[in-house]
Computed example of a mutant assay.
Amino acid sequence: MSLDFLVGFTIFMLALIMVVSMVPGLLVGLQSSGIDYDAVAYRTGVILAEDPGWPVYPPWEMKTDAYKDEIERMGLAASKETPNILLSTKVDAFFNSFFTADDYRSKAIFGDIPYSYNFSLRSEDYNYATGDPLPPGYGYIRRAVKIKEPGVANISYNSSFNETTLDPSEPRVFTVRLDFSQLLDPSVGPAYRIDPRTEPVNITITEFGRYLNATASAENATLRDVTFWKMDPTVPMPRFTRIPFSYNTEDPDLYTLSLDGNSSDLKPNAPVNSSISLVLKPVATSIFTLDQNSVLDIRFTFDDGVPQRTFMNGTYLYDYDNVTIADLKPAVLEVAIW
Rank of each mutant, 00 (worst) to 15 (best):
M1W: 01
M1Y: 04
F12P: 00
I17S: 09
S21R: 11
G29E: 00
L30P: 00
Q31E: 03
S32A: 04
S33N: 04
Y37M: 02
Y37T: 01
D38Y: 02
A39F: 13
Y42N: 10
T44N: 12
G45C: 14
V46G: 01
G53N: 10
P58T: 15
P58G: 04
W60E: 13
W60L: 15
K63Y: 15
K63M: 11
Y67Q: 10
Y67W: 13
E70G: 14
I71N: 02
R73Y: 07
R73G: 01
S79V: 08
K80M: 09
I85E: 05
L87S: 00
S97R: 07
F99I: 05
D103Q: 08
K107E: 10
I109E: 00
F110R: 00
G111N: 03
Y115E: 05
S116V: 15
S116R: 15
F119T: 07
E124Y: 13
D125N: 15
Y126M: 13
L134S: 11
G137F: 15
Y140W: 12
A144N: 08
I147F: 01
G151N: 09
N154K: 06
N158H: 11
T164V: 15
T165E: 04
S169V: 05
E170A: 12
R177L: 10
D179P: 02
Q182F: 04
L183R: 04
P186A: 04
G189P: 12
A191W: 08
Y192E: 09
P200G: 00
V201C: 00
I203P: 04
I203M: 01
I205L: 05
T206K: 14
E207G: 08
A214Q: 09
A218G: 06
L223K: 03
R224W: 09
M231L: 05
M231F: 13
P238M: 03
R242K: 11
F245W: 07
D251A: 13
L259C: 03
G261E: 14
K267R: 10
N269G: 06
V272Q: 02
N273L: 07
S274K: 09
S275I: 08
I276A: 05
L280E: 05
A284S: 11
S286D: 14
L290V: 13
S294R: 09
T301H: 01
V306M: 08
R309G: 01
R309K: 13
G314D: 15
Y320N: 02
V323T: 10
T324N: 13
I325R: 02
I325A: 11
D327R: 14
L328R: 00
A331C: 11
L333R: 12
I337K: 06
